[in-house]
Design a protein around this nucleic acid. Sequence first.
DNA 1: TCTATTTATTGATAAAAGTCAATACTACAT
DNA 2: ATGTAGTATTGACTTTTATCAATAAATAGA
Lengths: 188, 188
Amino acid sequence: MNNSFLELLKSLAPFSDVEQNNAMPFFKEITLQKNDFFVKAGHFSDRMAFVQSGLLRSYFITKEKEITTFFAIPGSVCLDAHSFFGLKQSQESIQALMKSELLVINREDLYSLYEENWKWQQVGRLLVEKYFVASEERTIALQSQTAHELYEQFVAEFPDVVQMVPQHYIASYLGITPETLSRVRHIK
Amino acid sequence: MNNSFLELLKSLAPFSDVEQNNAMPFFKEITLQKNDFFVKAGHFSDRMAFVQSGLLRSYFITKEKEITTFFAIPGSVCLDAHSFFGLKQSQESIQALMKSELLVINREDLYSLYEENWKWQQVGRLLVEKYFVASEERTIALQSQTAHELYEQFVAEFPDVVQMVPQHYIASYLGITPETLSRVRHIK
DNA sequence: TCTATTTATTGATAAAAGTCAATACTACAT
DNA sequence: ATGTAGTATTGACTTTTATCAATAAATAGA
């Protein structure tokens, strides 16, 4: 398994080499080419990915508008929560914006891991806790900040993404129009 | 223990009577009077509550503005995620808006439960997953909906809360001003 | 009950962001 | 090199929401 993935896990709970090796067969390495989909809206998705390299984008379409909900950078966990946890059809699509290497596990295998060793269950819990806190913080930002503040915060948090994706993806992630983002970028 | 709490747990995983009884001593029933704080901003909070009755509000203060982030109704889990999961000083305060009965467990005891029986760890994970999905959905709403749509959705989702709390709390929960909410309420 | 405080509404105006449309820029494929 | 599709910028204008201020209504205490 890849180092960055192991480091993420080890930051959450200590694993022995044996435990790591036991888990390895559950994860499959896959490579997505640019524009390939990891999840397609309307389908059920039972796969969870750790991004090893590349970049993916989650988005959904509503009322003629396309809304970006997440950029998955290396080190991120990437899944459609509504589908994976809620067992529903995914509302979002997740698409690779460039060639991306992922470590993928499906729900069934993940749950086997959880039952096999409580430490994996713990890591699963800690991961979701971490993403829950991040989601809460994003909610608060959207609720309380102006377009300009949101963009500055985005640049600080994801400097690489700013360089790599079309601005209108970032605009929709911030809940503003591309025109507004373009103007906001030229303030100060 | 209270029925609504047990029902919540059973909806997530099946527990035997023995398992339930083993867990009981970890939970303390507390009653908050109106305006009592469950969490105070700036303090560390290691307590998690199940709301049995009453109503609480999470909020924080920024730039002279007060922003409501959550209403905890009966059946809800109530905590400051940033503090409880992130082990940081809480940014929010959580205050009872009326007399409220809570079942409270602290982090240490919760983690003992997790280690004692993997099913509790599983329930902990499932609970966070559930709240994560809800948080994602709220983010998407804030990102993509108008003030009017947000309010209509709030009324549909929390009809009781609408009756019970000052409108400006709801306004700040929706990321709009009290004046805008007042106007939006009289549309159509 | 009366008063003080909080809360809600309304109006006038300002600011922020959206919409529409034109144009320019870029990257890529042929 | 040329053309195409996607992307970014800019301007004029509209809509939405915020702000400020005044008043009205509701509520909680004494």
